[in-house]
Design a protein around this nucleic acid. Structure first.
Lengths: 246, 246
DNA sequence: GGCAGGATGTGTACTGAATACACTATACGT
DNA sequence: ACGTATAGTGTATTCAGTACACATCCTGCC
């Protein structure tokens, strides 16, 4: 993002972006067995919301949300999946005014950014330790929150988190494949702990391993993971998907 | 809808609706064992597309799509379910210009209705015989097409139909409950034929009945359906759902 | 009135996926 | 070397979904 420029920011927004439309990303991360979600605090308001942004006229929504994610975390190549679009009539983002005001930008009261905005929700799973969280014009504070101990969010963003979580859990295999949430090679217990963190419940080791292998999601490598202070574990990597058409 | 008024239609659209946003409805109907989809022909172009409309600034998207459905079919109370939002960068609706031009309305080339529009897709199942299909400003022709024998559609509407169908089939129980696709009381074979039409495959009678009853979707009534020229069948009605919270 | 035909009603067996569960093996720390 | 913590592995059960055959009842024809 550019540095805040009182005069041109709003004009640029109007010229380059689709009005009344935003994308929001529910970014889940796993750290130390706790499920985290990335939230931002609108400057000057103390209110928390989901990271999001506007869609440029020449970019697809998918590209827009990838860009937003990159701007906020410096992560690219992450699988972002659309899960729902929120189009209630009462969706207005008063927090935007405060955020912009904190940067010396006055927004006309009738500007669309303060009014009703339809928001397309995307969900992603990322590695907390790889994300380089960076504040922006919209967010003076951006940080990971424990999912079970987070502030309440503006408008319907709490609902978005709930839906995103449900969606992420139901597509967990799909969302984890080929992501950077795990190193290129990993052990089965590592993969299982990740699943458990995301699903919020414990899984049986034997059933878990059986399922991963039966689904052909991972393939075992000849090496063992040494260096840990326990029994060495087999290492695995994501299996190449054999292209199955619809 | 109002009668086309060259001067005010566009102004009204700008004033009352959210720009660059539309809702589209994939309306499936079953008739004589064939799965139908409601399509409209943009006036003057001969190109076919899904019914749709714009979202008023004071109504929710859900309300907007219900209104569109009502305007086109006079059906109300139908369950419409959002299934996906289409936000590709190349979404422009040239057909709109022709449709409006056919009504003597000239659209400036840079107006948003001709440019990129993000479209929120909804799906519904309705009774073909109850729908009173009515042309509108946007559609000079509106009719049911056999799903397997339909014209190709503009932009990504063919993709929308595919996704909608997949979504409808996976939620069939949910979409059929309490709808007007069947009379208040119906027989099990009637319900089964409806399922078969929507799913596009035949089902086993015993398994089907067992499943419907096990899921508690229907409850048997004391009466038999007479008057048919076969063995009389039990009648059923939709069972009241015992409110289960998430 | 009897009989053939077609549609309706019903229960059991099989298969596959998910679940529950216990013991052996290895490295580290003492 | 011995205890402990973690990793590796197979079998039995349950549940959902699927496959399948025969009796019943009404209609229409003879």
């Amino acid at each position: 993002m550019k540095a805040p420029d009182p005069e041109t920011l709003l004009a640029e927004l109007d010229r380059e972006c689709l009005p009344h439309l935003s994308v929001n990303a529910v970014i889940f991360g796993a750290h130390d067995g706790a499920l985290k979600v990335l939230l931002m605090e609108s400057a000057g308001t103390g209110t928390w919301s989901l990271p999001g942004g506007y869609v440029r006229r020449t970019e697809s929504m998918d590209d827009a949300v990838s860009r937003v994610l990159f701007e906020m975390t410096a992560l690219s190549g992450t699988t972002l999946r659309q899960f729902h679009t929120f189009g209630g009539a009462a969706r207005g983002e008063a927090a935007v005014a405060s955020a912009l005001h904190a940067h010396g930008i006055d927004v006309p009261a009738d500007h669309w950014v303060l009014g009703r905005v339809v928001s397309v929700g995307y969900v992603a799973l990322v590695d907390v330790s790889q994300a380089r969280v960076a504040p922006s014009i919209w967010a003076n504070s951006l940080r990971w929150w424990d999912l079970t101990d987070r502030p309440s969010l503006i408008i319907d963003h709490d609902d978005m988190v709930q839906r995103a979580l449900k969606s992420a859990r139901s597509q967990i295999d799909d969302l984890l494949v080929e992501t950077n949430l795990l190193p290129p090679t990993f052990t089965m217990p590592e993969l299982q702990r990740l699943h458990e963190t995301i699903l919020g419940r414990s899984l049986d080791r034997r059933n878990f391993q059986k399922r991963m292998l039966e689904l052909g999601l991972v393939e075992r490598l000849p090496d063992l993971r040494q260096g840990v202070r326990r029994k060495p574990a087999f290492t695995y990597r994501w299996a190449r998907r054999d292209g199955g058409s619809a």
